[in-house]
């Protein structure tokens, strides 16, 4: 057990009200549900703007950023109280975003506007708007903060943004309906999921060239319904957990060999996910079944499902305050 986790466990034992938390946005309830990673129960539900989807914390976890898509705003919530502190200008219909390593700039995909908006969370001003393809959605930023990625669902591209000039420097085609993007921890690879194409494309960051493609096959499910959306790397970077949408499964992919090692049955239409502090448990949002599945990462099995609001979508981890 890692010291940090041991400490966290001690604190949990001492004050169970302060366990680590998973925060989940409920797209059709206009709320966030807070799940205790200790009791695996919903311990709080807070109201948000309309159609909350993407969600992320500031580096010190003192602020929660929420894409309230239909309110055309990114909302800033105090996670201690659940109160909305203020809205950030976000451009229209923000769907997903990523916080730059500088903890100050949010890169926001404006789905209805074919634009990526860069917002300074301190001055609360729009720094730049960058034209990208139609229905931008997936957002990622490289660990060194030099590159931001937007994927566009209808244009079927990953757009590479130079964060210094705030201009595109490459546009790379991927399979149909790219939904999510992530860099590897070393910044050498950038991964993109394609929902309708049914693939994960892996790019070499230095050359922006495609280096591998991963396909999926879930037993008893027609390939058309195996639709990769959200995914997360494990802390050691060895594996990637991939949500496969309406196939109701999570795939476990070996990040070194690119082989799919296992499919785990979770709830219906699985979207996104977050790990707990030590990465031993994974929490997946299941849109249609309105719940969150807790996966035992070592055993690669679902442990429990937790009822949340209607159409849970995004998920973010917050350690013990």
């Amino acid at each position: 057990m890692k010291p940090a986790f041991f400490l966290a466990a001690l604190l949990v034992a001492a004050a169970p009200a302060h366990a680590d938390e998973i925060w989940v946005t409920n797209e059709k309830d206009d709320t966030v549900s807070v799940i205790s990673t200790d009791t695996l129960e919903v311990i709080a539900t807070y109201e948000t703007g309309e159609r909350p989807r993407g969600v992320t914390f500031s580096k010190d976890y003192s602020r929660l950023y929420i894409c309230a898509s239909d309110s055309d705003a990114v909302q800033v919530m105090d996670p201690e109280t659940g109160k909305i502190l203020h809205d950030l200008p976000s451009g229209e219909d923000p769907e997903q975003f990523v916080l730059h390593p500088d903890d100050r700039h949010l890169y926001i995909a404006n789905e209805d506007d074919a634009i990526t908006t860069v917002v300074d969370v301190e001055t609360r001003k729009v720094v730049a708007q960058i034209s990208v393809g139609i229905e931008p959605e997936g957002m990622a930023v490289s660990p060194d903060g030099k590159i931001a990625i937007t994927t566009s669902e209808t244009t079927n591209m990953a757009h590479w943004i130079d964060t210094e000039t705030l201009e595109l420097f490459a546009n790379t085609l991927v399979d149909s309906r790219p939904r999510h993007a992530e860099f590897t921890a070393d910044g050498a690879e950038m991964w993109v999921s394609s929902e309708i194409g049914g693939t994960l494309t892996i790019f070499d960051v230095a050359t922006q060239k495609e280096k591998a493609k991963i396909t999926f096959a879930v037993k008893g499910v027609h390939p058309d319904r195996v639709q990769p959306v959200g995914f997360e790397f494990t802390q050691n970077g060895d594996h990637v957990f991939v949500a496969l949408g309406p196939s109701n499964h999570i795939a476990v992919v070996n990040a070194r060999t690119y082989e799919v090692e296992k499919y785990i049955l979770v709830g219906r239409r699985v979207w996104h996910m977050a790990f707990n502090a030590d990465g031993s448990r994974l929490f997946t949002t299941n849109g249609v079944s309105g719940d969150v599945t807790v996966v035992d990462v070592a055993k690669r099995k679902a442990l429990k499902s937790i009822k949340v609001g209607r159409y849970p979508w995004g998920a973010a981890f917050r350690p013990t305050p």
Binding site: D113, I115, V126, A128, Q129, I130, S131, E167, L168, N171
Partner: peptide, 13 residues
């Protein structure tokens, strides 16, 4: 701003 960004992007590409 959006239009400007659009025109610049088009000119570049």
């Amino acid at each position: 701003k959006i239009w400007f960004a659009l025109i610049v992007a088009m000119a570049l590409t």
